[in-house]
Each structure stands twice: as structure tokens, then as C-alpha cells.
Design a protein around this nucleic acid. Structure first.
Lengths: 256, 256
DNA sequence: TAGTGGTCTAGACCACTTC
DNA sequence: AAGTGGTCTAGACCACTAG
């Protein structure tokens, strides 16, 4: 686990050494965590796969079980792994349940939540606009896959959204293969795991087109959600701007 | 620490016992955590106060240092305690910096965030309306302290809000003593710690009064934030409905 | 220098799941 | 019964802060 001296058979007995020579100090369990993340990024550990037991991992790396445990617990709290007592530790999957819980904050006012169905309005690979280049950190001349769709809850249209994806990653995405659960597709087809996102919310008046698509009058107030989704490595992989009707729905945010 | 047998001098040697007799199983560190929360609720540990060291607490309760550590770490992750290496463990305070970070999600579009100043429009103790009774779980005939105020960022009015507080707790709150940082006052004057809140967001069109107060045209889209704040014990202590202009501001939500 | 929290280890036992 | 993660303990040492 240390970065400099060649590990002998039983390397670590106290704390870190190479790390403490520098000013920065990175605990052993954090280094182990990073090593595990690397395996996820490389795809050595696939979604749904069961990891070796804590003791096996500890023996392989040459640290104690407790240190491996801290690393695995950290990754579980980041929702990259799922731990189940008696069964094992697994790589998290982007199934609908997880998306619904982690990334979909819109609820019926009654409190129930359901996964929205989607209807594609337009889709294609086009040169990135300036705002798309800025959001996704692209260079001039880069392309994006741009998707416009409408989403319905219980059959009612509640939002229209525009998605912009870097063509360098998603260039081969065809319009007719856009599923309801996009993040699952990103993972299985492109090996990209969306691990977190930041959303900026505003209130706006709907324009003519959006209003028509949603079947309401132009000028109707709508919740604007500007989402930037980041991969495991922290690079932006999706920019999504949604305009939502909030007559019967709300965005739920838990603080604290 | 066990709930049934009278503890002798050195009680615990393995795991829980009384707990495992029942179907439910509550780990030792969770019981220790609960015991610490109780001290916070009772006010035995005051905001800003330094706690005894881990070893002292462990000796007092009769568990190992590691178990006390897990309990303290849990409370620190709930932001009820603040731990600082080399200094000690302290009871968290509701200073402006914490409020700004934990409860105030409105940002300038430029990204900077600042604490808004407040201007009281109206304030008084009145019978609770039906919606207030429902939000705060009050009974018919109960009273609330209702406050209407406007808040400004960099001198610009950005939101109007209505706060409803149970009079049973905050009945003695006078209009002229409402500070900018309310949660700090709740803690110091009423012994109530706001530990978490849930917010529901919608987009609405401003009514005549709100629009006039904010100096914009009626019908301007605004972000409606409906916040219910909960105390340490989990009881609702404040209901707050804000209408925010989002021309130059947005609500920031981090997912993942 | 002393005291605090933070890390790491080692080993025992408990709770849960599966065979 | 075997294997997994979860809890608990005990003790050593490290990093940070303050007097």
C-alpha cells in the first residue's frame, strides 16, 4: 500500500510513511478507498458484482481488516457500493429504484413518487453551443448529442427537458435507443457512472413552445432545474435543463 | 449501558445482551449516541461547550473508547457536535456561518453567498390557522407567533416570507427582538435546537401584495419554498413559507 | 510537553444469509 | 454449518493544538 518502499511480506505495522514525509497526509484507508475507486473506473469491478470479502481484500493489499472496512464504508456512504450483512459487498447499480431515490426529487403533492415515462421530441448529434461548451467544459468545435424530451407522471405531462451529452463519449447514442432510465444506459453501454450532480433551481415563465408541449398557457410559472451530472472521476458528462409544472408537484429537498 | 440488569463496575465485555433478547437490536454505540442526544436535549451540554475526552466518557459510561468514538462520530455527522483534532469535541452552535452553510440554499448566480438582512413587516401572537395547525401538528385553539418579513441580499429585496411558530414554545417572543439569525435565538433564548428541515419547492406567480413588497409586477414568477424545521427531538418548531425572486439568484441543491 | 482527536492493528464475538 | 458484514474491545502510535 505504501508508495515508495517495496512491500515485503507483512508491510504495514503502524501508520503511513511515504505520505507523512510530505506535507500532505492521506490516511491509509483513504489510499485504499482511492485504489478501490480506480478499480471501479477501470471496470475491473462491474455493477452488480460481488466484491471479495474484507479479509481477502485486506490480505491482498496488506492492511488490516479494519482499514479495508473504513474504505468500503466510505464508498458505501458515497453510494458507489452496497453492503448487506450476511451477503457481501456489491458494486452499486443504476437501477430505477436508486435513480428515483438519489436523483429524482420531484414528488406528487400527495407525497407518493413514481418514475416518469419519457417521450422523445428531438434528438441528434450537433455542434455544441457556447452554453453547452461552458457547462460541459468542451472545446470550440466539439460536438454534443442533444435530446429534447417530455416526461409524464401518471400520464400527465409535467416537464420538458433538454439534455446535452459530450459526443466524445456518447457520440454513438442513437435516438431510438434512449430508454427511460438514462443513467443505467450510461453505465452499461458507455461505462460511465454518474456519481453525483448539482442542481440550480429558478422560477421562470414558460415560453410559447414549452407551454404548448405541456398543454398549458404561455407564461405559466415553471420550475427551472439546471442539472450538471458528474462521473466517478468528477468530469461533467451530462447537462440537463428541465422546465417543470408544479401545480400538483413539488421538488423535495432535505436539509440537515 | 444495558437496559435491564443493574450494571456492576465493569459491565460490558462483548456485545449487547438485553437488546438481543428482543427482536430489535440496537448496537451499543447507538445507545451511547442516544444517551448523548439526551444530554443535549436536557441542556446538560450547552452550545459551544467542550465535551469530556473520549477516554473520560468511555470510563464514565463503561464502554471502550472505540464505542464512544463511533457515537461521537455519528453526532458529528449529524452536525450536532463539532470535532477538532488536537482541541476537543464541542457542541455545535447556530452561528451565521453554519446557518449559511446548512440552511440557506439561495445563491447569487455568480456563485457567492451572503447572509441576507431582514426587515419585519408584521409580527404577533394569533390563533393558528388550519394550515398552520396541520404543518406544526397543533390542536384546535392553539396559538402561533406569526412573523412576516422581507429579506434583502446586497440591499436588494429578494424574498418575502411568513414564519409560524408554536406559541407554547415561542409565546414570549417580542416583535422588536427578532434578529437576523433566528435559529441562534431559538437555541439561546428558548433552548430549542433546529437540527434538520425539509423544504418543498414550487414555482408560482406573485400576488399583488408580495409583488408590491418586492417592488416587481404582480404575476412575476417566484420560487415558493415551504420549509418545516424540526427540533432535536423531531418535533416541528417552525413553519416558513418564502416567495423568492430568482432573476439573479438560484436555489442550490447537491445530489449524491 | 501534555492533552486531544485520528489512525491502525489484532482478535473475539454477534447478527444475518445461504446452503 | 459456513461465510459474510457488523460490533466491541484493547492498545499502540500519529497529527494537531495549546500552554
Amino acid at each position: 500500500m505504501r508508495s515508495r518502499p517495496a512491500p515485503t511480506s507483512r508491510p504495514v505495522s503502524g501508520g503511513p510513511d511515504a505520505a507523512s514525509e510530505k506535507l500532505g497526509f492521506r490516511p491509509l484507508y483513504a489510499q485504499v478507498r482511492d485504489r478501490f475507486v480506480q478499480r471501479l473506473v477501470e471496470g475491473a469491478w462491474q455493477p452488480g458484482q460481488m466484491l471479495p470479502s474484507e479479509l481477502d481484500l485486506a490480505a491482498e493489499i496488506g492492511v488490516s481488516q479494519g482499514t479495508v472496512r473504513k474504505a468500503l464504508d466510505a464508498l458505501a456512504s458515497e453510494r458507489l457500493l452496497v453492503r448487506r450483512q450476511g451477503r457481501g459487498t456489491f458494486v452499486a447499480e443504476h437501477d430505477e429504484a436508486r435513480i428515483l431515490f438519489q436523483f429524482f426529487k420531484l414528488r406528487r403533492d400527495s407525497g407518493e413518487r413514481s418514475f416518469p415515462e419519457s417521450r422523445i421530441l428531438a434528438s441528434g448529434r450537433v455542434p455544441a453551443r457556447a452554453d453547452e461548451r461552458e457547462a460541459l467544459a468542451l472545446a470550440a468545435g466539439d460536438e454534443v448529442v442533444r435530446i429534447e424530451r417530455i416526461r409524464l407522471l401518471s400520464g400527465e405531462p409535467v416537464l420538458v427537458e433538454t439534455l446535452s451529452l459530450p459526443a466524445t463519449i456518447f457520440g454513438t447514442l442513437a435516438a431510438d435507443e434512449v430508454p427511460n432510465n438514462l443513467y443505467g444506459l450510461y453505465a452499461t453501454r458507455f461505462g460511465v457512472t454518474v456519481s453525483r450532480a448539482r442542481e440550480k433551481l429558478k422560477a421562470v415563465a414558460l415560453g410559447e413552445e414549452d407551454a404548448a408541449a405541456l398543454g398549458v398557457a404561455a407564461g405559466t410559472p415553471a420550475l427551472l432545474i439546471d442539472r450538471l451530472a458528474l462521473s466517478l472521476e468528477g468530469t461533467p458528462v451530462e447537462w440537463r435543463v428541465s422546465r417543470c409544472l408544479t401545480e400538483d408537484h413539488h421538488y423535495l429537498s432535505d436539509l440537515g
